[in-house]
């Protein structure tokens, strides 16, 4: 089996898991929630195997020197969804909040289906600029950071829905599906925890990127659009971290900042490549 066929199954698994998590919100059955998690874990394992297999495949092409499969848009999108699952499963395991899955799995599923349906999955050997171990360190840390922000964004959306509805209904707790959401306090805390994990990872990602740029081109910072956007993302989350310790900024405003932060993250990752020009354009 090729890595591509593994990734097809992975896409289906994430879809199934997403549907199950949503079904959990509707049925309130914890059996469904457990199944959703197991399907997600299955997909994650298959994806790990698939990435390993693709790594092996890079050695098989003519003249292929072999490389960690994170060097073009397709590979990075697949890797992104893998990191989302990794961070999500860790957080679910640690904080036991199943409902969050319904708001995080869609990101992983969207990423996988985009990769499988419309991105170029051919393996091409690396051009000289990308032949560096720094690439691997840089990509891994950046994407783990992005994934943590994806989880934080999912949690923040839940927070806003929950708080918004509670205010509609009047004081007091919202019923129905929302009763399965963790409490607003826990959501606020999870948001913070996810960003607490993501922020140092993003910092390391920016630093390894700078170290690599310095090693390959002799400038650690050149205000290239991708660099600048990663810094913008970093500024936003730094503002978030300080906002939380300031009176009046925790809760709703922090959640909004977290969503803006993730929107900036996605722009940094995709928008810059697709819309702006610079050093980082994948595959050009």
């Amino acid at each position: 089996m090729t890595s591509g066929s593994y990734f097809n199954i992975v896409t289906i698994s994430y879809f199934a898991s997403m549907v199950l998590f949503i079904a959990f919100l509707a049925t309130k059955s914890f059996g469904v929630a457990r199944l959703a998690t197991w399907v997600a874990i299955l997909g994650f394992i298959l994806q790990t195997v698939g990435i390993g297999l693709r790594w092996y495949e890079t050695y098989q092409i003519p003249g292929g020197a072999g490389y960690a499969p994170m060097s073009n848009l397709y590979e990075s999108v697949v890797f992104f969804s893998w990191t989302i699952l990794l961070i999500y499963l860790l957080i679910e395991w640690k904080y036991k909040q199943k409902a969050v899955g319904a708001f995080v799995l869609p990101f992983a599923f969207l990423a996988m289906s985009w990769a499988q349906l419309s991105l170029d999955s051919s393996i091409a050997p690396l051009v000289p600029a990308l032949q560096s171990n720094w690439l691997t360190y840089h990509v891994i840390t950046c994407f783990l950071g992005y994934a943590a922000f994806a989880v934080a964004c999912g949690v923040s959306i839940m927070y806003l829905i929950k708080v918004g509805r509670e205010e509609d209904v009047g004081r007091g707790k919202a019923g129905g599906v929302l009763s399965l959401f963790p409490s607003a306090k826990i959501l606020d805390d999870l948001n913070y925890k996810a960003i607490m994990i993501g922020f140092p990872l993003l910092s390391i990602g920016i630093i390894t990127g700078a170290a690599w740029a310095n090693y390959a081109w002799g400038t650690y910072w050149s205000w290239d659009p991708k660099e600048t956007w990663s810094l913008i993302v970093w500024f936003i989350y730094a503002a978030f971290l300080h906002a939380r310790i300031t009176r009046g900024w925790a809760g709703r405003r922090a959640a909004i900042l977290s969503i803006i932060g993730f929107a900036a993250t996605i722009f940094c990752y995709l928008g810059v490549n697709l819309l702006l020009s610079g050093l980082h354009s994948y595959g050009s």
Binding site: P225, T228, L231, A239, H242, I245, T246, V272, L276
Partner: peptide, 22 residues
């Protein structure tokens, strides 16, 4: 800290200009 938050957000917003305007 309010000034920090303000400055961080201003830095984030103004940095966008140079990525859009070559």
């Amino acid at each position: 800290l309010k000034l920090s938050i303000f400055t961080l957000i201003m830095l984030a917003v103004t940095s966008i200009i140079g990525t859009v305007l070559q």
